[in-house]
Design a binder for these strands. Sequence first.
DNA 1: TGTACATCAGTGAACGCGCGTTCACTGATGTAC
DNA 2: TGTACATCAGTGAACGCGCGTTCACTGATGTAC
Lengths: 218, 218
Amino acid sequence: MDGSRAERKERTRQAILRAALRRLEDRGFAALSLRSVARDVGIVPTAFYRHFPDMDELGMALVTESFASLRVMIRAARQESMAPGDAIGRSVRVVVRHVHEHREHFRFIARERFGGVAALRRAIGWELRLIVSELATDLGRFPYLERWSADDLRMLAELMVNAMISITDAVHSLPPGQPEAEAEIIGTAEKQLRLIVLGVPHWRGAPRDGGAPRPAAD
Amino acid sequence: MDGSRAERKERTRQAILRAALRRLEDRGFAALSLRSVARDVGIVPTAFYRHFPDMDELGMALVTESFASLRVMIRAARQESMAPGDAIGRSVRVVVRHVHEHREHFRFIARERFGGVAALRRAIGWELRLIVSELATDLGRFPYLERWSADDLRMLAELMVNAMISITDAVHSLPPGQPEAEAEIIGTAEKQLRLIVLGVPHWRGAPRDGGAPRPAAD
DNA sequence: TGTACATCAGTGAACGCGCGTTCACTGATGTAC
DNA sequence: TGTACATCAGTGAACGCGCGTTCACTGATGTAC
């Protein structure tokens, strides 16, 4: 056991976060007990209080950590989408890779987004709305989208974020080590995003680019 | 207390389901206790076992009931979508109305879809996949879509179901009695579905209808 | 460098509580004759 | 229609268990002089 007292304390704190995420593999946060976390870390239950005032604060720390992870992914996906070529395909693969590498973070967000703890639902909802706003701003720089209203950009961003969320759900709901099932998920996700993008030039008939008729399918 | 013994038993069973859904307003199913349900119903905890072998079976009964409710909604939305005129708008409004009238069922599905109980996650996932399949079949009858592959129809159905699910999430995450916030949700949902549909005639350039260029926005 | 004191991460006993489940029971309803 | 017996929804006491939280503590690390 080396390191200063502060370093060792930080290490225990990290161990608590790791143990909690591991325990959350098959249970919701509401069903996670302080004692089970302490047991996994190898400390006595009362030592938990040296790091968090209660379980709710542990939950909030997990939200913070999980969204830090999500934002790393978004930054990577954004870079892929700005390079020329198959932007959608590369973005989707970035998402899938990150979901694999940080399964626990994404599962935590997915599960607690509508989970049993109101404080976590609120915090996660807030963060997701922020991400939608940021994507809406980004989208405003793409062809056809420069003249869209802020509202419509948000609408589109929301649609895309929802599509991405359902990819992450699909990815971590399949058992590990099924490359062909995963390839299918990736394929479907790409198609969905392509279909959405396909509608963009025809939105409200704004751009004068050939005047395809509005579909009769509505 | 009238009715036959069987009728009274059925009434208690219904009371248990009602009490459970009421308790699930602010908690996940994993955090729902047998004793709290019994307390609400007004029976002794042990009487619960006359109706369900354990809490898991109560959960499965709630899945069955909630999806019966969901299917009523789908049938209504399908009817709206076949009448001429603003099919999307009317379908969305049907969804929103049903979500209001059966808040508890929809919240249950939303929360337990990724919730802490594996058996419920599996059952709900199965039912949702079934619904996607049925919608895919339905969609195959619309203009432009007759010649889509089964895979692509499923992809589109999934996208639409996800969009609808996020409507229901949005609806029951807002406090009751906010007509203007709700109108905005409805508006956004309609736009999202319209945008998706707008891409349909241009998918893979299949139909020869004017040959709009593929968008550069990918 | 050495000593005296302060800090504080982790300990361990103890508490009261709500939980799921068991068991033998009660007494109203249902059925066979 | 009346009687004797069977069924079974609901009762109430009891159990052992894991939980969150309190408290006074220990002893290694850190700091002031």
